[in-house]
């Protein structure tokens, strides 16, 4: 079975977010980039399923410029077999989805996995667009994925519960916890990753449909009003009479 795992390159979760002086771009200076944490579930689960099936391949796909290669190599070190980088800045979800769909179509992949969203743009869009572009089902967000032959059983999170969904290959699923325990690279993986194939291709399809005109940070808080622990009950009165939230 052929797995395609799509990963994004995002600022580490501890990053303090700042922007360029014109507020049009994220300020990358001094920022550590990582594999999007949600995508790590997709990657590890694909490797686990491949191992359980005793064959098949896991291909990692990233739409990004050359500076994403260290994290692509990391994905290879975790256990993917080969990688493709579409050499372009990921302008918006639709642009990225077209690249993924084109590669998936040409490569004949059975299972296309990715994280439920990237922690930088938080679109929760790409998986649905890829499914629609390819005319195949998307299950998002998936908390569990098991395969039996060409049939997958997934648990899909809904507000307040979950659905059990069965789909046949090919399909798209976007992953989140508790699907698996994301793996970290071991020394052997890091050594072998250096020689695994990483193909660079140029983007295809239409351009983006959306554009960020400005970024902004949330307004700063006014400062905390402290209430002494002995008179904790006063807090409840303030919440009713001053903040008017209860």
């Amino acid at each position: 079975m052929k797995f395609l795992v799509c990963i994004s390159n995002v600022p580490d979760t501890t990053t303090k977010i700042t922007f360029t002086p014109d507020n049009k771009e994220f300020n990358k200076a001094g920022v550590q980039f990582v594999i999007n944490p949600w995508d790590e579930y997709a990657l590890t689960r694909a490797i686990e399923l491949k191992e359980a099936q005793g064959g098949g391949t896991v291909t990692v796909l990233n739409v990004g410029e050359a500076d994403t290669e260290p994290n692509i190599r990391k994905a290879l070190a975790i256990g993917a077999d080969d990688a493709i980088r579409v050499n372009a800045f990921p302008k918006d979800a639709f642009f990225v989805a077209q690249q993924i769909a084109n590669i998936a179509k040409d490569g004949g992949y059975d299972v296309i996995l990715m994280g439920k969203e990237s922690i930088d743009y938080n679109g929760f869009q790409v998986h649905g667009m890829v499914g629609e572009l390819l005319g195949i089902p998307t299950v998002a967000p998936a908390m569990k994925l098991d395969m039996s032959g060409n049939t997958a059983t997934l648990e899909r999170e809904i507000e307040g519960g979950k659905e059990i969904v069965e789909v046949n290959t090919p399909f798209v699923a976007s992953c989140q916890q508790p699907m698996c325990e994301p793996r970290i690279p071991n020394m052997r993986g890091i050594m072998t990753a250096r020689t695994k194939p990483l193909k660079v291709v140029e983007p295809t399809g239409e351009g983006a449909r959306t554009e960020v005109s400005a970024y902004a940070l949330p307004p700063a808080k006014q400062g905390v009003k402290l209430i002494p622990a002995e008179s904790a009950g006063e807090l409840i009165k303030l919440l009713r009479n001053e903040a008017k939230v209860i």
Binding site: I17, F26, I119, D120, R209, V212, S213, A214, Y215, A216
Partner: peptide
């Protein structure tokens, strides 16, 4: 143009929608 949450609640983005 719409304002949307980005960077997992750490920022907002004004996004222009084409078409």
């Amino acid at each position: 143009t719409v304002k949307r949450g980005a960077f997992s609640g750490k920022a907002f983005a004004d996004v222009t929608l084409a078409g």
